[in-house]
C-alpha cells in the first residue's frame, strides 16, 4: 500500500508543480493546493501508517493496550491543513482583487515597469 501512496505523492507534487508553471492564476492556486495535499500525505506516509487503530483510547482505558497510529504526524498535518486554508483563502481573495483590477488572471500581465514607479 505504501508504494501506491508513494506514487500518489509523486503525482500530487508533479501536478502541483505543473499547475504553478501555468499562466493562469487560478491554476497557480490549484497547484499550490495540490502541493499542500502532497506534502500532507508525505508527512502522513513517512510517519508510518496504521490501519484502523486511531490514536484515541477506549472510554474505559487510561493507557493504550494495542498499537495505535502515530498521533504526531496527524497533529502536524492538522495544523498544516488549517494554516494552508488561511493562506489559500487569502490567495483566492487576492486573485479576486487582481482580477477586479486588471480584468484578467493572466500572470504575464502583472508587470508595472520601473518607469511608472512613483
Amino acid at each position: 500500500m505504501e508504494l501506491l501512496l508513494v506514487v500518489l505523492i509523486g503525482a500530487l507534487y508533479a501536478s502541483g508543480v505543473y499547475l504553478i508553471l501555468r499562466r493562469s492564476m487560478v491554476r497557480l492556486l490549484l497547484g499550490i493546493i495540490l502541493l499542500g495535499n502532497g506534502t500532507n500525505i508525505l508527512i502522513f506516509l513517512l510517519g508510518t501508517i496504521t490501519k484502523g487503530k486511531p490514536p484515541v483510547m477506549a472510554a474505559d482505558m487510561s493507557v493504550f493496550t494495542d498499537i495505535y497510529a502515530d498521533p504526531i504526524p496527524q497533529a502536524l498535518i492538522l495544523t498544516a491543513i488549517v494554516i494552508s486554508f488561511g493562506l489559500t483563502s487569502f490567495a483566492i481573495v487576492l486573485l479576486k482583487r487582481v482580477y477586479a483590477l486588471l480584468g484578467t488572471d493572466d500572470l504575464d500581465t502583472l508587470n508595472t515597469p520601473q518607469e511608472e514607479d512613483v
Partner: peptide, 11 residues
C-alpha cells in the same frame, strides 16, 4: 520546508 520536516520526522 514542510516536506523537509516530514522527512526529518520520518527518519
Amino acid at each position: 520546508f514542510l516536506t523537509g520536516i516530514g522527512i526529518l520526522y520520518g527518519i
